[in-house]
Computed example of a mutant assay.
Amino acid sequence: MRSLLLFGPLLIAPVAAASAASSPLAGTYSANAMEMAAGLILGADGKFRYGLSYGALDEQAAGRWREKDGVVLLTTEPAVVPPRFVVVSDAASGDGALYVSLDEPDALGEFTLTLAVQYAGDPKVHYVEADEDGRVPVPAGQTVEAIVPDLPVYAAPYVPYAVKPGGRRIVFHFEANDVGKADFRDERLGVEGGELVLTRHDREIRFRRGVE
């Protein structure tokens, strides 16, 4: 597990003046659990800073916070621009097969290219790993109606690209934008005694005052 010290430049330096806050909730908080470390600052000026390391995921956020009906609400400012995949070329493949690749092969780091696929007549999204040459294995009798690369670790809006009939070679470009920035919109933290409780990535994160 990584230490909260990872968040030192992000979370600790700005807090000195904000710790003695007019709001009883303002101050510095931290949370540590198996494979997870997190930090949160609620400033007396109504601004917050947040950081989380959880397995392969690292995220941060900054913006405004407020109290309402006994809970803390976080809103990221400025608004997050989500990552996305955009098509840079789409041409006939010549052999009737569907191929998908990235214009920058290392854009996903160590992760292999996995695709979110929709088949004709099937509303479900299927996740398919491309072959080494980019060929997309398509089950017999199925026709790919829409496709887009799947972003590993981080959430991204699902924006499918319609696939033309016949074999195609489609090349996507990955725009990282604000990947790794938490898109809080009145994100709720419960107040339980001296702890702030955030449900995030299917985990309950309990922030306690001070830096562990």
Results as ranks from 00 to 15, higher is better:
143 T>E: 11
202 D>W: 12
128 V>W: 02
62 A>G: 01
40 L>S: 04
181 K>G: 03
94 G>E: 03
120 A>D: 15
80 V>C: 14
154 Y>A: 02
34 M>S: 08
199 T>D: 05
185 R>K: 08
85 F>V: 04
52 L>A: 13
84 R>A: 13
208 R>F: 01
23 S>P: 11
65 W>D: 08
22 S>Q: 09
33 A>Q: 10
12 I>F: 15
110 E>I: 13
46 G>A: 00
149 P>K: 00
37 A>S: 10
59 E>V: 00
159 V>W: 09
136 V>M: 03
209 R>D: 10
109 G>K: 07
180 G>H: 00
113 L>M: 09
126 H>W: 01
171 V>E: 11
99 Y>F: 08
138 V>P: 02
45 D>A: 09
9 P>M: 07
118 Q>S: 03
145 E>G: 01
58 D>W: 12
146 A>T: 01
81 V>D: 15
19 S>F: 06
63 G>L: 02
80 V>N: 03
54 Y>D: 03
57 L>Q: 06
144 V>H: 01
134 G>M: 02
136 V>R: 00
138 V>L: 01
139 P>V: 01
55 G>P: 10
99 Y>C: 01
67 E>Y: 04
204 E>R: 11
155 A>G: 15
198 L>W: 11
107 A>E: 14
29 Y>I: 07
134 G>T: 04
63 G>S: 03
92 A>R: 00
73 L>T: 02
20 A>I: 14
41 I>N: 06
121 G>H: 00
112 T>N: 13
140 A>K: 12
167 G>I: 09
